[in-house]
Nucleic acid binder design. Structure first.
Lengths: 137, 137
DNA sequence: TATTGTTATACTCTATAACTATA
DNA sequence: TATAGTTATAGAGTATAACAATA
């Protein structure tokens, strides 16, 4: 009855449209060649910092080894800093640098515009609904 | 006010969870090593066949060259067939084979279960809302 | 023994440009 | 000239397993 499987296609398509828009608008901003993964790591980090790497792995549903490489690149570009946790020597805590904060602000601005364009077919009420439903999932 | 940019993270996370679930449950079914892209091409094709390659490119928001390679693999595995359009020699129309149809049915079944799990936090009404909103975008 | 993070490897997906063929 | 599709190439993302260090 439900035909839930169509939603996989819809979500994939939306993600592709977002990626495509990002890809078009980022080159002007992404001087350090961070890429889409780096951008999403930075923007999420900006909301939860200071945060251990493991927390980002959970939040982003990415592999640990992948996160290691991406974070190494972000650190090399001077966008984030690593700090060893005082109480637990296994944990590496991440924070944004001043340069990182400036970059995140630019990326968030671009994302805001992209999502606004994406939501054009919806009424204001529906946009609110959609945002709330996404947050519940 | 809006904070639309958070939705990028939410959508990305949902897509990653779907991919992860697919990756876990597909190995038993995906004998020909089609991969996630191949699966989504087949399932979309099953809804719109017979369809020219260009139509799949639009539907899936993928690059034409990427589609060429993916389709070549699907054809080599005997899941789809290519037919030249009678009226326009530039167009290649795709159809599923019998083997392709069997495979698609299995994949759709897995997708159905994955989305059902994903939507557990929502009430039946909210699930309907979410599906409708996705379809509008 | 379990957890955090790293390294190495192989594979898939993606973007770009140059190309052929048909209209 | 415009469109449909192909080829080649380089780059980015992903999964896996094996590993070191800390708890």
């Amino acid at each position: 009855m439900a035909e839930y499987h169509e939603m996989v296609h819809h979500i994939d398509r939306i993600m592709r449209r977002i990626d495509g828009s990002m890809h078009r608008r980022m080159p002007e901003v992404d001087v350090d060649r961070i890429g889409p993964l780096g951008c999403i790591i930075l923007t999420v980090l900006s909301r939860i910092e200071p945060a251990p790497i493991q927390r980002l792995v959970d939040q982003l549903c990415r592999d640990g080894s992948q996160m290691t490489r991406a974070i190494k690149k972000l650190e090399a570009s001077g966008l984030i800093e690593k700090h060893r946790d005082e109480h637990d020597g296994r944990i590496t805590v991440l924070t944004l640098t001043a340069k990182g904060r400036v970059f995140v602000a630019e990326v968030l601005d671009i994302m805001e515009g992209i999502v606004a364009d994406l939501l054009l077919p919806l009424s204001p009420t529906e946009r609110k609904q959609f945002a709330d439903l996404l947050a519940k999932l």
